[in-house]
Design a protein around this nucleic acid. Structure first.
Lengths: 236, 236
DNA sequence: TCAAAAGTTGACATTCTGGTCAGGTTTTGC
DNA sequence: GCAAAACCTGACCAGAATGTCAACTTTTGA
């Protein structure tokens, strides 16, 4: 498959187009039916291609799967970039939560696909990919540790904080059924995600207990949790 | 299978024993390989039974699967029972988080099995089962709404709070790989779960921002988390 | 224009796996 | 002790799924 015969580069239009089509159909199916539950003839049907054509672009089913993993990982760090030392912790964490929710909302299949892979033990993840996740995480953990050292955040373990944020944000998409049952909706809407954001930010940043002294005091309405609420979730 | 021929009841020792054995092997496999990825001959091998024997006890693979779902749902509410109106919110929520973590830690396969089922859309869940989840949740949501009305909790949406708690606790087991990568461990230990509990409780109840009261008072209701990590230079 | 490269595809080979079944053995109730 | 019920299992089947291939068509570059 000499893709670059020197004088060539943009002539792989057809290839690019079809590979994209295939991967798009595949991530949708994999995310809902898993690796074993997905048949390539299904992928082919969705693409409107004969099965043999799929095999012209990808040698095996596993090939499609791992290609998807590779692409998805590129998105892993995107949201992480919100966490930078210079920023105010409240803003940074809010933005991070918002970005993560927005991504998971608009990329349901990808989110579930990744969740499914991890749930099954991540046997398709290469060592390099695991280390990538680890490295990216470690960098941002350091930022938060910095904030804590400066007294700008409570002394909470940043690693567990990240885990809590990840899990809370992903839940709405990965386990939408339970989320919908809980919220008593048929399906989740954009508004539900917005509410989720408010709630997660509120609970994680300020806690869910009254902000006053414990003991006997009765708390009235909580003081403005965050005066600098931006309009809407940032597009992605 | 007429299991009760009037004069019989406890003579199904063999049946009970084998069914248990089969279900135990099945939940382990289903949780790691999904419905389609699990072959009944595998289940049989783990049980040390010939394949046909599995079919003597369960008519189909789906039969095994749905039987498992039914049993698991019984455990769903267990932890929920921590949330009772009389209790102090802090205690109740702490106990709930603790119970949920303990369950997920000691019942990894079951936890992942359920997660996997929901992730795939929960098509094996019956309407009755969905409604059960909904009802149990609604009950406890009401308790929290009561607390909020009494000013014993900040005015946060209890539904989203539950979602955050569920997701955070389950994450450590369902997505252990990512949790382990984040915590830089090979596998999670009991101690890690204990730390997780502390962290989740800390973040959710008190928030992760400094507790300085708006008026300037220094809060002391947060137990000082002794070990501060040394500061690190913030990277890019 | 035209040959080579890229893309397409129906039919086939092969392997798996869920599920069946008939006939056998063991356990139980009396 | 004995018949009936419960339990066991090797062999088999039908459908399905992955992957192959050789012949065919379209696109490309000069």
């Amino acid at each position: 498959m000499a893709a670059k015969t020197a004088t060539k580069k943009p002539e792989e239009r057809i290839r690019a187009r079809n590979e994209t089509k295939i991967l798009k159909a595949a991530v949708e199916l994999f995310s809902r039916k898993g690796f074993d539950g997905t048949r390539i003839v299904e992928i082919a049907e969705i693409c409107g291609l004969p099965k043999a054509n799929i095999y012209y672009y990808f040698a095996t089913k596993e090939d499609i799967y791992t290609t998807l993993i590779e692409r998805l990982l590129e998105g892993w760090d995107r949201a992480m970039e919100q966490i930078t030392p210079g920023r105010d912790p409240r803003d940074a964490l809010s933005a991070y939560i918002s970005a993560k929710l927005e991504y998971t909302r608009t990329h349901g299949a990808e989110s579930r696909f990744f969740a499914s892979e991890i749930l099954r033990g991540g046997h398709f993840l290469s060592l390099r990919q695991k280390r990538h996740i680890q490295r990216v995480t470690r960098e941002r953990v350091a930022v938060i540790e910095g904030w804590i050292a400066e007294g700008r955040m409570a002394p909470i373990d940043p690693r567990h904080l990240f885990i809590t944020i990840w899990s809370a944000t992903q839940f709405y998409t990965d386990f939408e059924l339970v989320a919908a049952l809980t919220l008593e909706k048929k399906r989740l809407s954009v508004t539900d995600y917005a509410e989720a954001e408010r709630s997660i930010v509120g609970a994680l940043l300020d806690g869910c207990l009254p902000r006053q002294a414990p003991a006997g005091t009765v708390s009235q309405d909580r003081p403005p949790r965050s005066k600098r609420r931006k309009k809407m979730a940032a597009p992605s």
